[in-house]
Amino acid sequence: MFKINTERNQLVIKKLSDKFLDAIVQHEVIADMLCITIAKEAIYPALLFLRDDSDLKYDFLTTLCGMHYPEREQLGVVYHLHSLTNNHYVRVKTATELSNPILPTATTIWPSANWMERETFDFFGIQFQGHPNLVRILNLDDMVDFPLRKEFPLEDQTRDDKDDSMFGR
């Protein structure tokens, strides 16, 4: 249905593991995209390497979004990088603990990360260190919670007149 560029996927993994072997937690191909999980200590140099390496050239940050893994007590960030010269996407994931969610900012690598990181902070509470202006962007400034975390279900949980088990969660 969709084509997978196995050659290039392997090149990316090889290049990355040459430099960041210990930091690569996991790599797999999900659907049509290579997905690499990198430990948070190495995420900044790894992203910089992905952008600057002459064979890889992931020069375009397509999107960046937060994730919440309640069962692991972690918050994560997912970067979708696009190499316009090679026309290849790669998905980079990283995670940080829920109690002290700190990650380095990517704004110095791609300026477009500015608002996307603000949005991620706004909804998940991830602190991006080195961000020029890390304040809320879509929600109210005096809001205290981070609404996209899973501990805030959409419906009032005290109600028992509604059976939501059919929705799977």
């Binding site: 999900i30 659907a31 049509d32 995209m33 997905c35 397509t62 999107t63 979004c65 994730m67 997912v78 979708h80 996407y89 998905r91 059919m166 929705f167 799977g168 969660r169």
Partner: peptide, 25 residues
């Protein structure tokens, strides 16, 4: 599973990053 799909919308690349854990939503 998880997929990212993008189309050329009128303003540019409109992407959907969809993560499913096997539930109905």
């Amino acid at each position: 599973g998880e997929v990212y799909h993008c189309i050329e919308a009128a303003n540019g690349e409109l992407g959907f990053y969809l993560v499913s854990d096997g539930g109905r939503t």
